[in-house]
Design a protein around this nucleic acid. Structure first.
Lengths: 216, 216
DNA sequence: TCTAAAGTAGGTAGTTATACCTATTTACAG
DNA sequence: CTGTAAATAGGTATAACTACCTACTTTAGA
């Protein structure tokens, strides 16, 4: 019986293209498609699916949050993340959620096919560029290096603040929105910047977009 | 003989997916692919191509600039723009370049097939959402409305400045980069913001990203 | 239960951005 | 040839951001 996959991507053309590529394989079948995070979570609740292929950047509920909920529904659910970017922080988050597949959009289409087959067997598949630095981090953490690996993890509140900033709110508005003082909003902002090694608003916004914390 | 098309998109998976969709049609053939604007311009210089399908958001040379150069090489070249956003300003620019096809990525895959066939016959194909407001604008411009239609068109220099801002340069650096005074850089920035009705850096950056003026 | 992390909030300085002005030179279209 | 748009550049004032401080309270984990 074929491996039954669900595709989630907000762009219909991308989704159908991917579907066309996958359909060329006899052992894989696209049984459902979703155009946002909420839809794919609903599918996870109501259908039996072998593998979820989820794009990071989606409206309403981004790919990461959707994956998180899907893993909560059943930790044995298998998810492959499709992403435009090879950002360390995001990969860590995905892996810590128990996601086993992470494929970059700029890799060849047959990588996604490979990923489906590998993840189906409950093994990891990461695009080469990703696995390279996951392995590198592993090596570094084993070694005697005391060097401060800037492994970034924002707190929940920090992510909330960052999202508002990236959506165009100024600090004053962030504070109002979260019902905290301006000084607190600034403190969060400064902590975020320090953690990320970012010094400019522009980079902050781009980071948030890259991470799928917010969408354009 | 089949319609020979070239695909330009920086994401290989998207490109191959699209290629798979197109390949299902007997009368259309993907003869070449490009992963950035420069590559597709090079193809335009050296090969005979019926239709160029170009994604807006691409590194090195964005889809719009690439299209502009392709139209300069031969004004009879046929280009279809693939875009994530239905932004008025960008569509105007595309149309004024002589581009006859504009397809949104969130539309169905067969729209691109339709677009190829229609544009091949030297007619216009715009995704419905696009054509709606192109027509609306036409109607408005015919009517007696004196209302200030905020039809936005940035000048070349303004686009340069905006790109640098969106890439994370502060005004001082923009000035250095373009070898102009800080005051001039500021003047351009203010003009851009006024034209776009934007008052915050965050929105400026998001605008640039949306328009494909720069990439994340 | 104790402690570390997270969340809260304030102070102070210096830098950068925003929003108005005005004005000159260059290039191009009517 | 002549006006208009574009590109250049300066002035001034206010708002927002960045980068340091310190310090208290709450929360969750060892």
């Amino acid at each position: 019986m074929a491996i039954e996959v669900v595709l989630a991507d907000d762009h219909a053309i991308v989704r159908q293209g991917l579907s066309a590529v996958i359909s060329q394989e006899q052992d894989i079948k696209v049984i459902k498609e979703a155009s946002n995070g909420k839809e794919v979570v609903d599918i996870a609740k109501n259908a039996s699916v072998d593998i979820f292929i989820i794009d990071i950047t989606m409206p309403i509920l981004n790919g990461l949050e959707a994956s998180s909920q899907i893993m909560q529904i059943n930790p044995r659910n298998k998810v492959i993340i499709l992403s435009m970017h090879d950002n360390r922080a995001f990969i860590e988050r995905a892996l810590s959620l128990g996601i086993k597949g992470y494929v970059l959009k700029d890799s060849a289409a047959d990588e996604i096919i490979q990923a489906i087959r590998v993840v189906y067997k409950n093994e990891y598949f990461l695009s080469p560029r990703i696995s390279t630095f996951v392995i590198q981090d592993y090596i570094d953490s084993r070694g005697q290096k005391i060097g401060e690996k800037k492994i970034v993890s924002l707190t929940g509140r920090e992510r909330e603040v960052l999202q508002l900033i990236a959506e165009g709110y100024i600090n004053k508005e962030v504070a109002t929105h979260l019902k905290i003082s301006l000084k607190t909003a600034l403190a969060h902002r400064n902590n975020i910047m320090q953690k990320l090694g970012i010094h400019r608003q522009a980079d902050l916004i781009k980071y948030a977009l890259k991470e799928g914390i917010t969408t354009i």
